[in-house]
Computed example of a mutant assay.
Amino acid sequence: MFTGIIQGLGTLQPLGTDKLQITCSSAVSGLMLQDLAIGDSVAVDGVCLTVIEILPQGFIAVASPETRDRTTFSRIHGTPVNLEASLRVGSKLGGHFVTGHIDGIGYLRDAIQTATSWEMTFTTDDPRVARYLIPKGSIAVNGISLTVADCDPSGSWFMVAVIPHTYAETNLQYLRPGSPVNLEGDILGKYVEKFLRLNASLPPRSDPSTHYESLNASFLAEHGYL
């Protein structure tokens, strides 16, 4: 589990068909590697990877064919990647719950600098991503916890406002129109969707003593979830 708060940048290089080498600066190594152990999880551009070897300035991780096919890893060799160590019990949760399991790929449409932020618009044609996009909802872009400022009803595009600190400390600064990014929808939204779907398919209970309130959009709105 991660929070979407990036701790540093590294570069990614493939090693054979199933391994990736992530190299980072001495400053980032000092921050991330001092407590890193074999078997630990690290989010690399939002992808949860398992460390199998620790290097003086980086680490080696395993990436399955499914991971390569479903993420940007096959297209970004040698470019900066965002790094975040897994969340520890008692640590601050500054972003939102990020699992490191990518739903799909999106693409930068444009990035416009304003007086207070960068307004970045991304597109996606993957329904596994689009269905969880709502205004003011959470989205992880290359592992970065961001808030959806606006999106279309179908979820084919969304816009986020990125503060200068986040822009400067992550690989968002290196994106250009058409650049691919890893996208992960909010895990809470996925569970709500499943509960609503299951609730709709359940037969009514005949025993009044086992009555329970229906989990539907009205129930969620009444209790502050929508």
Rank of each mutant, 00 (worst) to 15 (best):
M1G: 14
F2G: 10
F2Y: 07
T3N: 08
Q7T: 04
Q7E: 14
L9N: 03
L9G: 03
L9C: 04
G10W: 01
L12V: 13
P14F: 06
P14M: 05
I22K: 01
C24E: 06
S26L: 14
S26W: 08
S26M: 10
M32W: 01
L33K: 05
D35M: 08
L36S: 03
L36I: 00
L36D: 01
I38D: 07
I38Q: 11
G39S: 00
D40E: 07
S41R: 11
D45N: 15
D45K: 09
V47T: 15
C48R: 09
C48G: 08
I52V: 07
E53N: 06
I54N: 01
I54Q: 05
L55K: 13
P56D: 08
P56Q: 12
I60K: 10
P65T: 11
D69C: 10
R70N: 15
R70E: 15
R70F: 14
F73G: 02
F73L: 15
S74P: 05
S74E: 12
R75Y: 12
I76H: 08
G78T: 12
T79H: 07
T79D: 06
A85D: 02
S86D: 01
S86K: 00
L87W: 09
R88S: 06
G90Y: 08
S91E: 15
S91D: 15
K92P: 00
L93A: 06
G94R: 03
G94I: 05
G94L: 03
H96Y: 03
F97C: 10
D103W: 09
G106C: 12
L108F: 05
A111R: 12
A111V: 07
I112W: 11
Q113T: 07
Q113G: 01
T116N: 13
S117T: 09
E119Y: 00
M120N: 05
T121A: 08
T121E: 10
F122A: 09
T124F: 11
R128K: 15
V129Q: 13
A130L: 07
R131N: 11
L133Q: 11
P135K: 02
G137A: 10
N142M: 10
N142D: 15
L146S: 02
L146K: 02
T147R: 02
V148C: 03
C151F: 02
D152H: 10
D152A: 04
S154P: 08
S154T: 15
S156N: 14
F158Q: 11
M159A: 11
A161T: 03
A161W: 06
V162Q: 07
P164E: 02
P164N: 01
H165W: 03
H165V: 08
T166A: 04
T166L: 00
Y167S: 06
A168S: 13
E169Q: 06
N171H: 02
L172F: 10
Q173N: 14
N182K: 11
D186T: 02
D186V: 03
L188M: 12
G189F: 00
G189N: 07
K190Y: 12
E193R: 14
K194T: 10
N199L: 00
L202G: 04
S206Y: 01
D207H: 00
P208V: 01
T210P: 00
H211K: 06
Y212K: 13
S214K: 09
N216A: 09
N216I: 05
L220I: 07
